[in-house]
């Protein structure tokens, strides 16, 4: 567990910084709800479906549940995905690029142990991040005095956000482990995350976009709306598969490939 603990220790500032940012931003976003509610509820009441995809419909802007689903779960998930990918790259790819991985693997540590300890450090960091992410939203609600949602109501969106972040970071982690290419890992995971985000946002506007969006993890994140209808078992299983399959494929490759020796 030494590599796990040390990874979290050395990355604590990065984790703290991102947690602080999302806590404050989510808290602030919730404060905007009363003023946006009135303005957007009337503005979006008669929007065509294509624009509803972007701006939400009247029902969404009418309740805190709808607002959190739109602003926190959907919009802010982009920030969460970026953090997940960057954190994943920083704990594995950067260590190999810098040569720090070699210094550690010159000690009697198996590559499999190194791989899993790094991965569980990533999982742990994401758990902390997602808790703080929704704690920010909840703190915002408390400040507003809105009691329409309890802390327990947020556990399902928190799990969905955690699985989304973990799926993208697992892809980044696995590509790095298998190829040692930070740029390839960053490109593929960011592409899937950002493109998935936009495609899923527009999926109701055209069937072809809806079909395309199904090839990205984001589609299985909040379709159907988790806050309204709860977690969908099929979506959870698909996200778990997206998490596990790259790991299963990349571990044996990492265990046998040549390390980057500079």
């Amino acid at each position: 567990m030494h590599i796990f603990a040390k990874t979290l220790k050395t990355k604590r500032l990065m984790l703290f910084f991102w947690c602080f940012i999302v806590f404050i931003v989510n808290l602030a976003l919730i404060q905007l709800f009363p003023s946006l509610k009135e303005a957007f509820a009337s503005l979006t009441a008669n929007l065509p479906p294509s624009l509803e995809a972007w701006f939400g419909n009247g029902l969404i802007w009418d309740s805190m549940k709808g607002y959190i689903g739109m602003e926190i779960m959907n919009q802010m998930s982009l920030v969460a995905m970026i953090f997940a990918i960057l954190f994943s790259l920083s704990i594995f790819a950067k260590e190999e690029q810098s040569g720090l991985m070699l210094t550690q693997l010159a000690k009697p540590i198996s590559r499999k142990s190194y791989f899993w300890q790094k991965y569980f450090a990533l999982v742990f960091a994401l758990v902390i991040f997602v808790i703080v992410f929704y704690a920010g939203a909840y703190a915002g609600m408390l400040i507003l005095g809105d009691t329409s949602l309890s802390l327990l109501d947020l556990w399902q969106p928190a799990i969905a956000t955690f699985l989304l972040c973990l799926s993208l970071s697992s892809i980044a982690f696995s590509i790095t482990a298998a190829t040692a290419s930070e740029s390839l890992a960053g490109f593929v995971s960011a592409f899937l995350g950002i493109v998935g985000y936009f495609l899923s946002s527009m999926s109701s506007t055209a069937p072809v976009i809806d079909t395309l969006s199904r090839f990205t993890p984001f589609y299985y994140y909040n379709t159907p709306n988790v806050l309204e209808q709860g977690l969908d078992l099929k979506n959870i299983l698909i996200l778990l598969a997206i998490i596990i399959i790259p790991l299963i494929l990349s571990l044996p490759i990492f265990a046998r490939r040549d390390l980057k020796t500079r």
Binding site: S98, G99, L100, L102, T103, A106, K107, P108, I109, S110, R111, K112, A255, R256, R257
Partner: peptide, 18 residues
């Protein structure tokens, strides 16, 4: 790559170690 037993009694210093 995975025989950690071989590295049990080995110390290593790289050129420009990280």
């Amino acid at each position: 790559c995975n025989n950690i037993k071989a590295l049990k009694d080995v110390g290593f210093v790289a050129s420009n170690p990280t």
